[in-house]
Amino acid sequence: MRSVLVLLLSITPLLAAADDEHVMVSLLSEHSALVPGKTAWLALRLQHEPHWHTYWINPGDSGLPTKLAWQLPPGYSAGDVAWPAPQRIDVGELQNFGYEGDVLLPVPLEVPGEAKPDTTAHIVAQVKYLVCREECIPGKADLAIDLPVSSAAGAAAKWFEAARAELPQAAKWQGDASLRGDKIEVALHGADLPPISDAYVMDRKIVNYARPQISRAADAVILSFAKSDYFTVAPPQIDLLVRAGAHAWNVRVPFSSSP
């Protein structure tokens, strides 16, 4: 993320910002214009005070994920946040997943084909977040930007490309999850599996959030998680984020009903 921060400081992005306690939030656009019928990328930037953090889509034992709601012109729609890899933030025995420092949460914006060039789109993001150190403070901000609609997207912000490159990659490994007693076991198969050091489950009520036991055998990595105290029924699949050092992948595995 450091390279992204350096690039960010060197340009003046289109933005709207709010400075609440302990985190400054702002809304940025990758390009200077929106093109009809194309996906444009926006990003929520969170600049945390040292030692303060906000949360990943699964915050862990406590906390709340940052939430975005949108007010958009007719025909526009915003997709889900492309969550960067979080870090573990442990407060005592409680496990959380979140972000410190300077982080970008990219969001795709679908621009309708009927959008008229030489008009301006007024876009509002209503952000709700929980920023914590040991204590927690809820915050909200309405961030607005006006972007011109044009046949050409205009200049692309280099820092956006850098941020995109650091997002977790979609993994193509085969795998499956199963319930084994009081454990949830995820097996990943592939000849090219990286040296996986940690894994976080995105879904709630499946696993407890401590680091899984990780073992390797031939072309497989086995991740063994403690089952959640709130586990009721096995889902059809689970989504995980898998880390090997600084690199991260998103992987989805089906849940098999019998081990």
Partner: peptide, 14 residues
């Protein structure tokens, strides 16, 4: 019978 709890983490001693 169960629903995931939400809130601030309990402030246990370190």
């Amino acid at each position: 019978a169960t629903a995931e709890p939400y809130g601030c983490g309990v402030k246990y001693g370190s």
